[in-house]
């Protein structure tokens, strides 16, 4: 085995700056997020983090598996209902409420994925859309979701029985921790033996099959993981707003997360976070102005598609500066 020690490392040697730059940027981002609630409205920041995680979870599928799901609101909004119900009606502590939301979203993902996964492209998207519409009507009709009213005044409770989450600062750092954990899971997932096979499948599916990989099962694994993480974001959001609502299971929500991911740049870890930040910020500022929100976000989206085909982050990675700093984009 003397062979593998001679050059055991990946070929990063060609861009020695990459590691240092990435760590510096990561630390800067962490610093900003820790300081942010003292300067900006914390609820807004928490909303931003929830949507950022949602978009990053969605990107696991679109960017790293090559599947366009048009039903991700099911996992986001569904999990919000499960968490809210468990915490409010059953009196569960918040951490278990969120875990239930994640498990519920993963189960829904398993069902939706198992039905849709053998179809390609637009057919896959249409099946996920149809199934998520069915789930929407279920939420509209089911008793525990309270229809148009949603589940209101959900108590945030005490994390691990100690930390009072009704304190906004406590809640913010809890959300930040969940976000960081979610991003870490995604990063590990992408950079793992499983992630390598996903990449191979995306690059040449027929070849992956001819090497003996049961491609559908790998895609289903990624689908369930993506659904579970979207559920994590949704469950936390229900606690942030103390509210689980029909809005979060609509097809518009599924569309919004696609928009965020494309805006930021698919196939990059940071892209969906930036895209979500942009969309949520625009919505927040435009909500108080006279401009119609959907038209403005639509225009921004059109501009991005025309000018930044790879999304904001994707375009930066592909630029001369990005490449000099050692970034590579998946696409």
């Amino acid at each position: 085995m003397a062979r593998d020690t001679s050059h055991a490392d990946e070929p990063v040697a060609a861009r020695p700056m990459a590691g240092a730059v990435k760590i510096a940027l990561l630390l800067a981002a962490a610093g900003l997020l820790i300081a942010a609630p003292f300067f900006l409205y914390p609820i807004f920041l928490m909303k931003l983090l929830c949507f950022a995680l949602f978009a990053a979870a969605f990107n696991l599928l679109l960017g790293y598996t090559g599947l366009l799901s048009f039903g991700h609101a099911t996992f986001f909004g569904g999990s919000a209902y499960f968490t809210a119900h468990a915490v409010k009606v059953w009196g569960w502590p918040p951490e278990f409420g969120i875990l239930l939301g994640v498990a519920g979203a993963a189960a829904l993902g398993l069902v939706m994925g198992a039905i849709a996964i053998r179809r390609q492209g637009i057919y896959f998207a249409m099946i996920t859309l149809a199934l998520s519409q069915m789930f929407f009507f279920f939420c509209l009709q089911a008793g525990f979701t309270h229809g148009e009213d949603g589940i209101q005044s959900v108590p945030r409770g005490h994390l691990f029985g100690v930390i009072d989450l009704s304190q906004t600062t406590n809640m913010y750092f809890f959300v930040l921790a969940v976000f960081a954990l979610g991003m870490l899971v995604i990063w590990r997932f992408v950079n793992s033996p499983f992630g390598m096979i996903l990449k191979a499948i995306r690059e040449n599916e027929a070849r992956a099959i001819s090497l003996g990989y049961s491609v559908a099962e790998y895609k289903l694994g990624a689908f369930v993981m993506s659904a579970a993480l979207a559920g994590l974001a949704g469950g936390v959001k229900a606690l942030v707003f103390q509210f689980a609502t029909l809005t979060d299971v609509t097809w518009q929500m599924s569309g919004e997360v696609i928009l965020m991911t494309l805006l930021g740049g698919i196939g990059t870890l940071v892209g969906p976070v930036v895209g979500a930040g942009l969309v949520v910020t625009l919505q927040n500022y435009l909500a108080t102005s006279d401009f119609p929100v959907t038209i403005i976000t639509g225009l921004v989206f059109m501009a991005c598609v025309l000018v930044f085909r790879r999304g904001i982050v994707g375009e930066f990675y592909a630029s001369r500066l990005g490449r000099a700093l050692g970034f590579t984009s998946e696409r």
Partner: peptide
């Protein structure tokens, strides 16, 4: 990628990429 499946190193989504270096030889 071809070696991963027979070596049963294809589904571990929780392990780092450098796990695969054991297949380099």
């Amino acid at each position: 990628v071809a070696l991963q499946r027979p070596a049963e190193l294809a589904v571990q989504f929780w392990r780092p990429l450098k796990t695969l270096n054991q297949l380099n030889g």
